[in-house]
């Protein structure tokens, strides 16, 4: 699984490429997120539009990524596909994260 990083203004956009965030990659994902969010601007948007499946391990690794960013920076999510969106809603994690329909919407929200 790859995560592409791109800074634009006061936002770092992290795009997950690779289809699944599951038990097979959860630990690697969390470690990669730690490296990519260190020294990031105040807001990090995690683009999940290429992720078709997430399980509870993957969900836990996103929660862990948010926690390891501390209180100074925020982790937003964008582009949830239907199955991923469903897991966030069922576990009520949609109440914990700011979720944007698309990355563009997330970037506009955080502009200025």
């Amino acid at each position: 699984m790859e995560i592409h990083s791109h800074d634009t203004g006061n936002v770092r956009l992290l795009s997950v490429k690779g289809g699944r965030i599951d038990a097979a990659v959860a630990i690697a994902f969390k470690d990669r997120m730690r490296a990519l969010t260190e020294g990031a601007p105040a807001t990090v948007i995690l683009d999940l539009s290429d992720v078709s499946f997430i399980d509870s391990s993957g969900l836990g690794s996103i929660v862990a990524a948010m926690k390891q960013m501390g209180t100074q920076r925020k982790l937003h999510l964008a582009g949830l596909t239907p199955n991923v969106d469903r897991v966030f809603r069922l576990t009520r994690m949609d109440k914990v994260f700011t979720i944007h329909e698309t990355t563009d919407e997330g970037l506009q929200y955080n502009a200025g």
């Binding site: 399980d55 509870s56 391990s57 969900l59 836990g60 690794s61 929660v63 862990a64 948010m66 926690k67 897991v87 069922l90 576990t91 009520r92 109440k95 914990v96």
Partner: peptide, 21 residues
């Protein structure tokens, strides 16, 4: 295992969602 309210009183859980799902 899911917290009944959000935000939860304690720290956010990083696991235990499996059986809930």
């Amino acid at each position: 295992s899911m917290p009944r309210q959000y935000p939860p009183e304690g720290p956010l859980p990083e696991g235990g969602f499996g059986w809930d799902l």
